[in-house]
Design a binder for these strands. Structure first.
Lengths: 168, 168
DNA sequence: AAATACTTTCAAAATATTTTGAAAGTTCAA
DNA sequence: TTGAACTTTCAAAATATTTTGAAAGTATTT
């Protein structure tokens, strides 16, 4: 398998993985492409490599930056913008966990809290089952939230730990 | 908020959550509906509650059964099939983790292994970056896989633990 | 101030996914 | 064996999502 074949394989697989986790196929592919590139790429490089339009690249790169896993790089003397992906796989995982927690876990916790304000007769089996299920979902969601919080905090303090070591 | 309003809210929120995690909105809604129902429901009950077609209900219920979080219930003397959701939230979580591991994590690990068979000059920086990134992705994916495996196994042995206690 | 070199936006087009419903299939009782 | 009661399938229709590309916007140089 040549490098280009291998890259194509990986980009395809990453796109498929993305789309089964609710991330658009193309966004995942752009991410994979930047991930395996040894140097930052321009919009045109990406258009060329994935055969997609300028607008599409622009949009997906912006989303990846919103996720905090791709950065804009400006080269002195160049007008064009370059993009590079975070290469530390653990950091990528943490960043995605952090964002999904904020974007998807916290909203569902708020929705569950809302829905708990139901005022009704607890002797009605329908009401009872509902209240109980919601209560259990809340517990589970809060647990997940706290666990992630702990891991993310640990990760960040480890980062600052190594950061400060540089100055010892 | 009345029970019906609360149910509607929850079903909506669950649908939204599902679709941001790559599960079809309707499948998540059917799941939520069964989750808060105190009794098993028929295809027609579900059609009525969510205002969707028979074929749609049939398909989504089948998928939920494939995920192992909804069961078919046959009532003696009734021709119709009833469906009920697993109510134990922790079990639901474990079951989903188990399935996604099988359906999405393991395939990507295989893809990464495939892509590592690239035979090329390691002094080429392009090849080097690629090999390194793939290596790191593999480590991360295998780690995740093993962690899940451990949790699932622990969960299952706990289940068998409590199961056998019944016979003491 | 105008020209150049880019980036961003967004309505329309293309594509992908989901939904429908009627026909085919199945099961069971008479 | 037939027919009634149900479930499943799947091609076509509806809907949702993604993609395009050209126009508008922005920043920099001359």
């Amino acid at each position: 398998m040549t490098l280009d074949e291998a890259k194509q394989h990986l980009i395809q697989a990453w796109g498929t993985l993305g789309s089964s986790w609710g991330v658009s196929r193309t966004m995942a592919q752009v991410h994979a492409l930047l991930l395996v590139s040894p140097v930052p790429m321009t919009t045109e490089d990406i258009m060329e490599a994935l055969q997609i339009s300028r607008g599409n690249v622009n949009m997906n790169v912006r989303d990846l930056m919103d996720w905090g896993i791709v950065r804009k790089v400006l080269k002195p003397g160049e007008r064009k913008e370059f993009f590079e992906a975070e290469k530390d796989v653990w950091k990528i995982g943490m960043q995605i966990a952090k964002e999904r927690k904020k974007r998807e876990l916290e909203p569902i916790i708020r929705a569950l809290d809302q829905v708990s304000t139901i005022e009704a007769d607890i002797t009605d089996p329908d009401v009872k089952q509902f209240a109980e299920t919601v209560e259990n979902l809340k517990k589970f969601a809060n647990n997940t939230n706290n666990t992630l919080e702990t891991i993310i905090k640990a990760e960040e303090s480890m980062f600052w730990g190594s950061f400060f070591k540089l100055f010892k």
